[in-house]
Design a protein around this nucleic acid. Sequence first.
DNA 1: TAATATTGTGTCATTAGTACACGATTTGGA
DNA 2: TCCAAATCGTGTACTAATGACACAATATTA
Lengths: 232, 232
Amino acid sequence: MANYPHINRILVALDCIVFGFDGEDIKLLLIKRNFDPEKGKWSLMGGFLESDEDLEDATNRILYDLTGLKGIYFEEIQTFGKVNRDPVERTLSVCFFALINIHAHDQDSAKAQNAFWINLKNRPELIFDHNEMVDIALERLRYKAALHPIGFELLPEKFTIPQLQKLYEAIYDSLLDRRNFSRKILSTKLLLDTGEKNENSTTKKAILYKLDKDKYQKQFNAFHYFISDSVR
Amino acid sequence: MANYPHINRILVALDCIVFGFDGEDIKLLLIKRNFDPEKGKWSLMGGFLESDEDLEDATNRILYDLTGLKGIYFEEIQTFGKVNRDPVERTLSVCFFALINIHAHDQDSAKAQNAFWINLKNRPELIFDHNEMVDIALERLRYKAALHPIGFELLPEKFTIPQLQKLYEAIYDSLLDRRNFSRKILSTKLLLDTGEKNENSTTKKAILYKLDKDKYQKQFNAFHYFISDSVR
DNA sequence: TAATATTGTGTCATTAGTACACGATTTGGA
DNA sequence: TCCAAATCGTGTACTAATGACACAATATTA
């Protein structure tokens, strides 16, 4: 069976940081554990890698079990491999974060996993090294969102510029200038005016935009190099 | 022993992309395999994770065995986990890249591993998914070097601005404007004038600088956010 | 219909980025 | 010896991007 002899095989788990946005704050989808180990405590959603399963398929499976959604945006962060990180048995954890539209997920799936949306600012202590994972995920989200138009993954299909601004303000926990923000976002040409307006507003109704998905795909991995001044 | 029953344990390997710079080109330290599987073919340097070893310690061990150096700069890229990526037995690979000063490493260590510096432009076909690993590593190096002063890891302690420019030109495979490059680099205030000049040159001798390590540490993780225009 | 909250757009000064020029240094051969 | 060739250091002018701030328009409610 095993063809590399004398080498130890190790348990491999996946752990997922699910970010959502409710219009005001960034939220995490966390598990109130009703199973061992650490029953009763909070943790990230996770699962073990099956022997016949690609790593990427396992990620999609875990996200589907949690949210009922397919095709969620996710990104690997890091693999955590301290010998004693899991007190039960040595377990490597491949850690990733996912971004979802908080209103689109399936609530029954979440309930079945005993998962709850928790405001990032009120996050509880998590088991094992899950706190560190969240710290790193948040750092990565901030890093990525600064350079790539990733934030749209957290919003509904149609959204207003003020909503988008609130999202960025939540991600960076800082206030932005309305006028400069608008100019900067529109200059990307990634937004399409739907012609509709946000009827939920009690004051002036803002224009609803949607993402230009073609441009989004093309531009996604382009970013402005620090060294961009090339010579012909 | 095992406390999570009914779950498959998997082999975990580490694979490392070692980048170097010889003054003209980016090079890779590759292994001409004199062992099975795929004996005789080229591969990345790698090794298995030991059962009593932290992931990070394993990385340092593998890099030390290859280069004789400690404290090398390295960064995890991604964990590769397709079921059939290793034809011998399923093996997860935690993949990372390292940057070293090509002249500082221990040649005997490299020789013992049958490792050779290969120009990135002439890289041979590698085994398994190692080609993809190199592609992703290069992309990550370009990404990172554009925003962080990471390039210094590839240069000797004292270096000239023209040398640094050649490095960036090699990383991005493009020519840069001498005058603007110099201005941009000096504006970071990360370079200290050593007062010495490069005696190797056959024409005008350039000023030798060294890295201001204090500033380097402090600034390393700072970068300019896309959304940086905050309101007081 | 006036007060309040919010949205869309505009202006101006400052900074950063791009394109390009000139004089200085060093070596080696005329 | 001195001039050509290569390379290095710095400067300047134009353009684009950013940051700070103002005003008019829209919608609701008292």
